[in-house]
Design a protein around this nucleic acid. Structure first.
Length: 645
RNA sequence: CGCGGAGUAGAGCAGCUUGGUAGCUCGUCGGGCUCAUAACCCGGAGGCCGUAGGUUCAAAUCCUACCUCCGCAACCA
């Protein structure tokens, strides 16, 4: 029975704000897998939690006028509440602000330093003043701050670095000899081609520009880089601290799988394994980067007003409906979408019609014809074989599909069985059998086959829709719910009684439901209004401003830059006789003809910079309304060459 | 020539590895049934399988070129 241990984790959620339904997909996916593994007889440890340090959180807290700790306590509470409302069975919810985690991380750092893999450096680093961030050469984006794109200055500041490069070869070997380590395959290629092949750079693992983090052991001016702190949760949660390994750690590590979003594969498949190698610990067996759930065609974001939260959905549709949607609608390797229309559609057609109605009609018939008592199947006919065969074959299919995380395919196998049951009812026509006293035995057998098949469905659904599964079993009047009980058709006991036929999912009136949702949306809009978190820059003197030369320029010519997706090359009349060339990252929003003839404001005395082969002399002013909406500040009535002050 | 993925009925997807009557869900139309939640079962309509070439007796499937979309990288002076 016991097949050994199975350690599964989700990524820990960043406590910057309440997570939306897309963020919640991961925990449900991991939960379904964890539940299934438990049913299979594995000793499962399932960990999730929250990632609570870092500059961003310090800023959010400051904006909210509370301490970072107060801030993360609030958000972590929301995150945990959502995990709970989704009925997830995590064994541990770790917070990176947990005392044990913080202490363990510090001890682990000492160990890394002792091993010589962390070194303190004082070399000329590059500093972005507005972001108060320190970057290594490799982190720069074409020599600029990767966060804000502004100029960075050489600054002498001490920082700690981790020798990634030392382990490059070892990592390559591991990835090669463990072909399933990075999954799915396409992501693996991305990692290898984009990061590993070009060569790994040492990673700066300390920050001294803000305070909200785990203090660097032995050097309290620094805090530990949040990603390093966060990744360690997978082992600190088991009690690993670099000194003596806990029993839990010895038992469960290495993780069988880290379930994470495709966007953070790099951290989990490069930095994390290398950290473990440095510690001399085994590597996780697999990292699964799942796709994203999008709202309609867009990423969910507050500014778009298309955010959907798991708890709201659970209130409206019920937990299992939400779980079902997430698990069945998400494709295996492509991003999925969520709209209220499709939720209702899936709810009605799959949960209410196919499954709910099947259970309801079958239980109702057994009550009607036999006073609820389950009959022994004594009058089998050839037609029964197909149904039984299908019931018996489903577990194997589901198991196989889940091995490669094809959850939606697995669910659809189970629903196929339910559909087969519905068909069987039509084939056998129990209501006709009921009219003939001589066929009573056959009727009892038909209903038995149905009830037993439904039991198969319920047991198979247990990992995915736990509440529904229990409700079905309750209506069947049985508690035989193990996977083992699916090895033979006939575990359901005759002479016991079914319960009362109670609809599992009442059909939704699509129009009415959508109207209700619509009516509840204005509240969201309002929230949007007062959520303008403008983070200002540090105060400057007039002299600083005076150094910037703003000049009106007329766009004479404009063309896309071949190699770049985002860049347009503009030729400008800046009032002088020589045309000025500027590259601007607005190709997504403007076509050349939209710009030619217009006048724009240019930062004229910015040092030239070559971008994708084009030397750019200056920068056009444009406003980022949102991340996805940028407008150039056009000016009228000012001739080319006018200087602004 | 940066790396990778995708383009299949109105919508969402499978099939492509190992060529051989194009399949699933929803929607739509018609029929059946009445145990059940206007549900369930059966059937029809609806596709030049992104475009153009090539290989082959035969291509959605293999090869070449191109177009479009997406992800990663790069990139918003």
């Amino acid at each position: 029975m016991n097949k050994g241990k199975y350690y599964i984790t989700t990524a820990i959620a960043y406590t910057s704000r309440k997570p939306h339904i897309g963020n919640s997909y991961e925990i449900v996916l991991a939960d379904a897998l964890a539940r299934f593994k438990r049913m299979q007889g594995y000793d499962v440890f399932f960990q999730t939690g929250t990632d609570e340090h870092g500059q961003k959180i310090e800023e959010y807290a400051a904006a909210a006028g509370i301490s970072p700790k107060e801030y993360v306590d609030g958000v972590a509470g929301e995150i945990k509440a959502i995990c709970d409302c989704l009925n997830t069975t995590y064994d541990k919810f770790i917070r990176t602000t947990d005392k044990e985690h913080e202490e363990s991380v510090q001890k682990i750092f000492k160990k890394l330093m002792d091993k010589g893999d962390v070194y303190k450096s004082e070399y000329e680093g590059l500093y972005c003043t507005p972001c108060e961030s320190f970057w290594t050469e490799s982190q720069l984006v074409d020599g600029k701050c990767p966060d804000c794109g502004r100029e960075v200055k050489p600054a002498k500041e001490e920082a700690y670095f981790f020798r990634m490069s030392k382990y490059q070869k070892q990592l390559e070997e591991y990835i090669e000899s463990n072909p399933n380590f990075i999954y799915p395959e396409s992501r693996k290629k991305e990692m290898i081609n984009n990061f590993i092949k070009p060569g790994l750079q040492d990673l700066c693992i300390s920050r001294s520009t803000f305070k909200w983090g785990i203090p660097f052991p032995g050097d309290e001016k620094h805090v530990i880089y949040v990603w390093v702190d966060a990744l360690l949760n997978y082992i600190t949660g088991l009690g690993y601290n670099g000194e003596d390994n806990s029993e839990m750690y010895n038992k469960y590590w290495p993780a069988n799988v880290h379930i994470i979003g495709k966007d953070i594969l790099r951290f989990h498949t490069i930095y994390w394994p290398i950290m473990l190698m440095a510690l001399g610990e085994p590597l996780p067996k697999q990292v699964f980067g799942h796709p994203w759930l999008l709202s309609g065609n867009d990423k969910m974001s507050k500014s778009r007003g298309n955010v959907i939260y798991a708890d709201d959905l659970c209130d409206r549709f019920g937990v299992d409906a939400v779980r079902y949607y997430l698990l069945s609608e998400m494709p295996h390797a492509q991003d999925g979408t969520i709209t209220y229309e499709t939720i209702i559609e899936r709810y009605n057609s799959d949960l209410a019609n196919t499954l709910g109605n099947l259970v309801n009609r079958t239980v109702a018939m057994n009550n009607k014809y036999f006073g609820g008592v389950i009959q022994a199947p004594t009058a089998s006919e050839d037609i029964d074989a197909e149904l039984k065969e299908m019931a018996l074959g489903t577990l194997e299919k589901v198991t196989k599909l889940l091995d490669t995380y094809k959850v939606s395919d697995a669910l659809s196998e189970i629903f196929d069985l339910a559909k087969r049951c519905n068909k069987y009812i039509d084939e056998t026509m129990p209501w006709a059998l009921a009219k003939d006293e001589a066929k009573k035995e056959r009727l009892g057998t038909v209903l038995y086959n149905l009830l037993e098949s439904i039991r198969f469905v319920a047991v198979l659904l247990k990992s995915f829709l736990p509440e529904t599964s229990d409700k079905i079993l309750e209506q069947l009047g049985t508690d035989i719910n193990t996977l083992d009980s699916l090895s033979e058709f006939g575990a359901l006991k005759a002479e016991t009684s079914v319960g009362i036929a109670t609809p599992l999912f009442s059909r939704l009136d699509a129009e009415k439901t959508l109207a209700e949702i619509e009516a509840s949306l204005p509240a969201v809009e309002e929230e949007k209004e007062d959520k303008k978190e403008i983070v200002g820059l540090a105060e400057i003197q007039y002299d600083d401003f005076a150094k910037v030369e703003l000049r009106v320029c007329k766009v004479v010519d404009c063309k896309p830059i071949k190699k770049a997706k985002k860049l347009l090359e503009l030729t400008l009349d800046d009032g002088t006789k020589t045309p000025r060339t500027v590259a601007s990252g607005i190709a997504k929003w403007y076509k050349p003809e939209d710009l030619i003839g217009k006048s724009v404001i240019v930062v004229a005395n910015l040092a030239p910079r070559t971008l994708c082969g084009v030397e750019s002399h200056g920068m056009i002013l444009a406003g980022d309304i949102t991340e996805d909406d940028v407008k150039v500040a056009f000016v009228e009535g000012l001739p080319a060459g006018t200087q602004l002050c």
